[in-house]
Amino acid sequence: MLTEYRAEVMRFIDTHQHLLEKYGISFVQYGPHQKLLQQAAAPCSVFILSSGLVKVVRTTSLGQAFTLGVFDRGEVLGDVEAIMSMPYFGTVETVTDCTFWEVAPEQFLKMLAQEPDLNLLIHRAMISRLLNTSEKAAIQGTNKLFYSLLIVLREFSRLNDINLTLLQQKIHAYENSIQ
């Protein structure tokens, strides 16, 4: 998957330390299982993960929680919401001890406006996440279709008393692979 942007984000920060003070970026630490961003809350910070693991969870209006991903060093969190002036899309929780660079949304936007190299890097990071999400959705959609077709064929074979041993083996193997 496209994750090389994370390393580029870290290289940018390492080579542009002077920007930390200029834009009021602070270094913060959180222990495991702490909420960093809360779904539907107004953006209050943008975080760049320096070390550790975080997970992003989206909860539907019916209360179903879906983990959108687990991310590591270099991940930018809250950037989309800051740029779009929208509430946080999901909840971000630390999985392990984590360290972050934290910047206020207004300062983040100012930094994007005044630092073209960072602006391009953040755009590339967003596009990379979009491509990764699209690829995952396509794979999941294809697997659901494949699974549904296998079930239909299995039922068809039962109705017509057709012995499709190979088909049944594939269905069984698929069911075991998704558990």
Rank of each mutant, 00 (worst) to 15 (best):
R73P: 03
G24L: 02
S134L: 09
C44R: 13
K136R: 15
I162Q: 14
L166V: 07
Y174L: 13
H172S: 13
S26V: 15
Q39V: 02
Y5C: 01
F156A: 15
H16C: 06
I122H: 01
A173Q: 14
R58F: 13
F100D: 05
L149A: 02
S61T: 04
E75P: 01
A7C: 11
H16G: 08
L121V: 04
G31R: 06
T142P: 01
I25C: 06
N143I: 00
N160T: 11
T165W: 00
V152H: 07
T59A: 05
D79I: 04
I151W: 00
G24H: 01
C44L: 05
L159Q: 08
S157C: 10
K170T: 08
I13V: 15
S61A: 08
S157H: 02
I178G: 02
L159R: 02
V76F: 04
L20A: 00
Q169R: 11
R124K: 11
L150Y: 06
R6H: 09
A42K: 03
Q17Y: 01
S128K: 06
Q140G: 00
M86C: 09
L77P: 06
L68R: 03
I171R: 09
S85I: 06
R73M: 06
K170P: 00
R124A: 06
E4N: 14
T99E: 15
Q29W: 03
I13R: 03
S157V: 10
A104V: 09
V56P: 01
A113F: 05
A113Q: 03
A173V: 09
S45T: 12
L20T: 00
Y30V: 03
V95W: 03
F71L: 05
E4Q: 15
P105F: 02
S85F: 10
V9N: 07
E135S: 13
D97H: 11
L36F: 09
E155V: 06
L166G: 09
V80S: 09
L112H: 07
E81G: 04
L150D: 02
S26P: 00
N119L: 08
K144R: 12
L131H: 11
G31E: 08
L49G: 03
S45I: 03
C44F: 09
T3N: 05
F66L: 12
G69T: 12
K136Q: 11
M111F: 04
K144H: 14
I171V: 15
E155Q: 11
R73V: 07
T99A: 14
F100I: 02
